[in-house]
Computed example of a mutant assay.
Amino acid sequence: MYKKYVVVEGNAYSRGVQIGKELKNQISINYQNQTKYYRDKEDFNYRKWGDMAKRYIPAMEKWTPEVMEEIKGMAEGAQMELEQILALTTAYEKSFSRDMISEKCTSFLLAPKATYAQKVIVGQTNEECILEWMNELDTVIHHVDNGKESLIYTHPGVPAYTGINNQGLAVLWEYIDNGRTGDGVPTNAIIRHLLECANVGEAVEFLKMVPHDVPNEFGIADKSGKIVSVECFPNKVYVGRDEKYLVHTNHIVFGKEETDYTRSIATKTQYTEMENQIKKNLGNIDIEMAQNFLRSHENFPNSICAHLSPERPWNRVLAAVVQDLTCGEMHVAFGNPCETDYKKYRFRKYPINNK
């Protein structure tokens, strides 16, 4: 039975060691599956990627040093080579290609004006290739460090995919593509570092400064009600804002001057359906309704709740995550949310500044 929730405490290195020990089996299987995936897909020896990924170490040590320490600890705890954990940490940089990114995730950010009880609610699907990632391995890691806490959904061996911290900040993420790559910090190290930020302003400033290796969109919200969509490219960063809601899928929304390499109709269809659901229920959305947004099968097979189909034989939703920043809760459905109940995860103390 795979572990779906673990608690780790202490400094970054110590938490990494605990993650490695607690999830040793899941991390190892994830690595073995990546090895098989790239051997079958392109006759590539995945061990080479670990060596190639060492080029990210200097940038991580400069911009996300605590993430680098966590990775080192994870390698020790899992009794694996650092290069193997580094390969998993940078797996999305390895897989980045223009024929894949258009069929991925759907996200939303809801400010108080959009919700029934003036809450801040955010959520997203994680839609990926079932040959590349085994969703039964996925987990929630609860980090505790001197009063600061984070709840992180991720693939074992990957520092962070999406999450919320007890300072009241949430981070969502999606692939986008303007055809450029750079020489910067890997995606999942950026996400993990963002979850150390206290508010939207701090997170946006970091995203403007940090060098980006591949294009990504990060949805950021905090408990004050601020929501932003930050499209980050190796050449430029664009910040989208709204007082009510924001939606994003895998095409460029705010960086209008960039060339969009998205080719599939799925991203536009999913975007339109999510926006329609929000507009229809504006001012009446609660956590249950937000969860149901991610269960939509409208326009199948290009639906938000994506399933395997003849048109899309390898991609489906691996998890759906909805986060309530007002209450400090993470709700995760491991698998298609139409088939799997959401599980609720909470902090020991929320928000951190409560007396």
Rank of each mutant, 00 (worst) to 15 (best):
V228C: 08
A75L: 04
D286M: 10
R180N: 12
N216T: 08
P234K: 11
D99E: 15
P211I: 01
K268G: 01
K119D: 15
V120T: 12
T272I: 03
G219H: 08
T249L: 05
D177C: 12
I287K: 07
G77A: 15
N165P: 04
E83H: 07
G240H: 08
C197P: 03
E136V: 07
T125P: 03
G73H: 01
K148F: 12
M274W: 01
L137H: 04
L282T: 12
M134E: 09
E243M: 07
L195N: 08
P234W: 09
Y38P: 08
G73Y: 06
P112M: 10
C105N: 02
I278D: 10
D138E: 06
H142Q: 01
R295S: 08
V200R: 01
P186Y: 01
P58W: 11
M52I: 15
R98T: 11
V67L: 05
S14D: 15
P156T: 07
Y345P: 04
D286V: 12
G240Y: 03
Y342N: 00
L169C: 00
G283S: 13
I287L: 15
I227S: 00
I352C: 11
R39H: 13
V200A: 02
N250A: 02
N299Q: 11
S229L: 10
Y261N: 03
Q32M: 14
T139N: 03
G201D: 15
K41F: 13
R241M: 12
M80N: 06
R192N: 07
G10C: 06
D260I: 10
R15Y: 07
G335I: 01
L131P: 04
K244E: 13
E231W: 09
F218Q: 00
V204M: 08
E275V: 01
R263H: 13
I164R: 08
Y92C: 06
A266K: 03
I227E: 00
N199S: 14
A160L: 05
K36V: 14
E132R: 15
E61N: 13
K41H: 08
N33M: 05
Y13K: 08
D177W: 00
P215G: 13
G283W: 11
G219M: 03
Q118P: 04
D222Q: 00
V144Q: 10
G16K: 03
S97A: 14
A75N: 10
G201V: 08
M100G: 02
K24M: 14
Y271E: 12
A189E: 04
I57A: 11
G123S: 08
C105W: 00
E103C: 07
Y175C: 07
N199W: 09
I252Q: 09
R192F: 06
Q34Y: 05
N166S: 14
I57H: 09
W314Y: 04
I191G: 01
K41V: 02
A160V: 11
A53W: 09
E174W: 00
L137T: 13
T115Y: 06
A170K: 03
S28G: 06
G157C: 04
G10L: 01
Q26L: 05
L137P: 03
